[in-house]
């Protein structure tokens, strides 16, 4: 290809455009990083004094500690139970025909379309009408319904790529269906299951809107605790929390990229 001055102009303006877009994505995180070291409790730019006190405060603030604990419990239980239910369902979805399959599929995947505030409100009203307390159990169920479609999808794709002949081979070697499942099918699906579980856990840990409808003081999750903090206080504690969050997520993605190549995971190769 011959490069005319116009081509160079095109290339460079493209690069500048992309850099500006990436700058837009990064801007709030850079700002939050600066803000988190602002000494005063009133944010000013540029900060007059620097300190780490908001990080210390973030770690001392009980609501955050409780929120982290609650969120971890809910994410662990929610995504694990969703993995169990979702794997089973993806399996029958992939393998069998049965009455009501399409309906069941539509209902389980509906949370992809239904706005989260509607899901939260629905479960809140349901719990109120049948007198179920707003407990951790209810939140776990809420999170299962929200993350289940992602687990089903992830496992279903793995099952589609699964070589069924390996199961036939195991069967011919005398393995009963259950043994085939536990020694062949599940071990070979493990990468898909792990990816589905991890994605579900992250989604669940971050879920805010639907949870807001169902939490109480005792069960509030980290995102809800953070939201409540912003409403009550204007100091940069949340900036410190956000920085920790961003660093953790970015580190996780960098690791994921090194080990799995993100472009492959996302099918944009």
């Amino acid at each position: 290809m011959n490069c005319t001055p116009l081509d160079h102009l095109l290339t460079w303006s493209g690069r500048i455009l992309v850099a500006l877009i990436l700058g837009f994505v990064l801007l709030p995180f850079v700002v939050v990083l600066i803000a988190s070291f602002n000494h005063s409790s009133i944010l000013t730019f540029p900060p007059q004094d620097w300190s780490l006190r908001w990080y210390a405060h973030a770690f001392e603030y009980d609501d955050f500690a409780d929120g982290v604990k609650n969120s971890l419990i809910i994410a662990a239980f929610g995504s694990t139970l969703a993995l169990v239910a979702g794997t089973g369902f993806a399996y029958v979805l992939n393998r069998y025909e049965f009455r009501g399959k399409a309906t069941l599929h539509a209902v389980l995947m509906s949370s992809l379309v239904i706005p989260n505030f509607t899901i939260g409100l629905g479960l809140l009203i349901l719990a109120a009408s049948v007198s179920i307390p707003r407990s951790m159990g209810l939140l776990v169920f809420l999170h299962i319904t929200i993350v289940l479609p992602f687990v089903v999808r992830s496992v279903y794709v793995s099952l589609q790529n699964f070589e069924r002949q390996l199961e036939a081979a195991a069967e011919s070697l005398g393995a009963a269906p259950r043994r085939v499942l536990f020694t062949i099918t599940l071990p070979l699906l493990l990468p898909g299951l792990a990816a589905g579980w991890l994605f579900a856990a992250i989604l669940s840990f971050n879920e805010f809107t639907a949870s807001l409808f169902l939490v109480n003081q005792r069960t509030q999750t980290l995102p809800v605790a953070m939201y409540n903090y912003v409403r009550e206080y204007a100091d940069p504690t949340l900036a410190a929390v956000s920085v920790i969050y961003v660093v953790a997520v970015a580190a996780m993605l960098i690791l994921a990229h090194i080990f799995f190549r993100l472009e492959k995971v996302l099918n944009v190769d």
Binding site: E163, Q165, L166, A168, A169, A170, E171, S172, L173, G174, A175, A176, P177, V180, I184, P187, L188
Partner: peptide, 20 residues
Amino acid sequence: VPVHKREIGIVFQNYALFPH
């Protein structure tokens, strides 16, 4: 009788060896 109780041995076209 189901496959796993038939006492047969099969060599598949693509061998179907358990990769794990």
